[in-house]
Amino acid sequence: MVDVPPLVVARALPDQVPENAPAHCPGTESDLAGKASACAGCANQDACQSAPKGPDPDLPLIRTRMASVRCKILVLSGKGGVGKSTFTAQLAWAFASDMHTQTGVMDIDVCGPSIPTILGLKDQYIHQSAAGWTPVYVADNLACMSIEFLLPHANAAVVWRGPKKNGLIKQFLKDVDWTGGMADELGADAPKPAVDYLLVDTPPGTSDEHLAVVGCLRESGIDGAVLITTPQEVSLQDVRKEISFCRKMQVPILGVVENMAGFVCPSCHARSDIFYPSTGGARALCEELGLVFLGSVPLDPRIARSCDVGESFVDAYPDSPASEAYTHIIAQIKRLVRKTDTA
């Protein structure tokens, strides 16, 4: 088991129940935590009874830290292997192509961090200063934070339960200095936040990491979520659950991206469907549920190569149909985020 220092003691989020909790669990924030009849015989009884109650004291610290971030965007997927982290990296590079735009990427896939590799940040480590943890910089205006920067070696497994994952995500939100030292220069009354976009790359599903980041950012505000899927029905079934999660947690959905939508030959540009959209794909799903269909990105073998070597696919292969699709989708996301800012 990997133990990453320095790490604060995890504290449960409001209305959260421990893993393997019995039916009718009162929750860790309740005054009856560990004392109710439902708690009898629960393995978490002693921990819940002795845990601190009341509002989480970390939330004001997170709100203060996130005041330097203008837009916070979650990138979600219902299942793994749909290209979520790849899309997050492309979106980050696109935002950072404007040298006047400060962009941060937070990788909260605690057990399977891939963003550092995709951004070309292998074997990098973070530094700690009086302002907090300093993220690793891809460029002067593009920074990244991931648990991989804290691991003793690249093959180290993170074998953690939910509360410890929540603690790390909290620490990323309240202790990472995304401003790169600009906070003191800007001052508390600065008219423009130091960071324009913070992209949060999440693991598949709707579990601990998602609850943690949404709960911690509730007061700071989440500008929206981009959902990634592939065309086949087995993936769409899972993204429906992600949509349900967003609506239940009141997270605005910017739109849905259909990834791996057919294979495009790099030479002749002929297209073949690899994942057949038997139910109409993401477009039909968006029409059914009243969501914005952001577009489809075809498969291109060079995307995988770009991820392995840590380069921007759009910059390396601008004439690829996949690059054109990325560019169109990213432009839509920028417009939607601007509308959110002015709403």
Rank of each mutant, 00 (worst) to 15 (best):
P5G: 02
P6E: 11
L13D: 06
P14E: 04
P18I: 12
A23Y: 01
C25L: 06
P26Y: 06
G27N: 03
E29Q: 13
A33Y: 03
A33W: 04
K35P: 03
C39Q: 06
Q45L: 10
C48D: 08
P55C: 09
I62N: 02
R63Q: 13
T64S: 10
R70Y: 05
C71W: 06
I73Y: 01
L74W: 02
L74S: 06
S85A: 09
A89C: 14
A96R: 11
T101F: 05
M106Q: 03
C111F: 13
P113Q: 10
S114D: 13
I115T: 07
L121R: 07
I126E: 01
H127R: 15
Q128H: 11
S129H: 12
S129K: 10
A130K: 15
A131E: 14
W133T: 15
T134R: 11
T134D: 11
P135D: 08
V136H: 09
V138S: 08
A139F: 09
N141G: 05
C144E: 07
I147P: 04
E148V: 11
F149V: 07
H153C: 05
A156Q: 08
I169H: 05
I169S: 03
K170L: 08
D177N: 08
T179W: 04
M182D: 01
A183I: 12
A190H: 10
P193F: 08
V195E: 05
V200P: 06
D201Q: 09
D201P: 12
A212H: 03
R218V: 13
S220A: 15
G221K: 10
G221A: 04
D223L: 00
G224C: 04
L227K: 02
I228Y: 04
T229P: 04
P231L: 11
K241F: 08
I243Q: 00
F245M: 09
C246E: 05
M249E: 14
Q250V: 11
P252W: 02
V256E: 00
F263G: 01
S267A: 14
R271Q: 15
F275C: 07
A282D: 03
V292R: 08
L299F: 12
I303F: 05
A304G: 12
S306E: 05
V309T: 14
E311Y: 01
S312H: 11
V314R: 02
A316V: 14
D319C: 11
A322P: 10
S323D: 05
A325G: 06
Y326Q: 03
T327H: 07
H328K: 14
H328A: 15
T342V: 14
